[in-house]
Design a protein around this nucleic acid. Sequence first.
DNA 1: CCTGTTCATGAGAATCATTCTCGCACGGCG
DNA 2: CGCCGTGCGAGAATGATTCTCATGAACAGG
Lengths: 141, 141
Amino acid sequence: MSRPEPAEVPGRRQTRQRSAVLALLDELEGFRTAQDLHALLRERGEPVGLATVYRALQALVDDGLVDVLRSEGLADGGAAYRRCSPVHHHHLVCRSCGRTVEVADPPVERWAARVAAEHGFADVQHQLEVFGTCAACAAAR
Amino acid sequence: MSRPEPAEVPGRRQTRQRSAVLALLDELEGFRTAQDLHALLRERGEPVGLATVYRALQALVDDGLVDVLRSEGLADGGAAYRRCSPVHHHHLVCRSCGRTVEVADPPVERWAARVAAEHGFADVQHQLEVFGTCAACAAAR
DNA sequence: CCTGTTCATGAGAATCATTCTCGCACGGCG
DNA sequence: CGCCGTGCGAGAATGATTCTCATGAACAGG
Ligand SMILES: [Zn+2]
Ligand SMILES: [Zn+2]
Ligand SMILES: [Zn+2]
Ligand SMILES: [Zn+2]
């Protein structure tokens, strides 16, 4: 279905490893840790060094093609990555399988800016994530 | 001024170290890392083992007396802790000094529940933090 | 107050995700 | 085809947090 692959960013070389990481992320529905991705690539016969996976993910995050989640909602103690749309959005994440839905909430955007201004804060950013158990996982237990 | 110290939770022993950690948190305005707190206690002549600081903080978080922030907004790679009120709230945090204001946003509470329900998610939780530069830090640069 | 049981402490080792080091391979370009 | 600079990978290094385990303190009962 979705295979837009605007994976071309000037200054970055296109290598087998980087393409493999992005291709894998394109197929997965939810957030996955770097180590998960590394293991999956290895299983598929696309051997990529762990350090390279981290580097590729970092580059993708910098280029805005991938979102990173550090909250404790998922993964015991590691960051999780997901191929996301480049427009501002938030996530509704399944705690047990990682399945994720991108959601937008215009009201919270304004609210964050307003409350920050009221308290004299500048340079405002916000971070909003919703965690839960998806229907499939709820049924499977 | 504020010295309510409801530090009594059944099943937990009251020790010098635990009291010291909570007392220190009561005086600080913003989020601090475990290692920061450890160093501060040491400077004050209240020597507490680092492992104990971690254990005390964990207990306080479990008891709902302290909030923990894992986002990358503050502290390079570590969790930060703060004495917070026990009612549900969110944070407006200064990226540079850690100063924090507790804020409430009823609308987002309803929004989170609704959007989760629409997608078949149960057991919903949410997490919202706002980061910025406070007036004092903005002036100081 | 005295005493035993139980839980907390702390120094250091262990864990674990992530990053760094550095020699080697390869992409892109002339 | 051959160069230059970047990307790769294996393993070491880092850094926060947790674990281990022997010792010491809290607290209920007597
Ligand atoms: Zn699920
Ligand atoms: Zn937003
Ligand atoms: Zn500030
Ligand atoms: Zn809320």
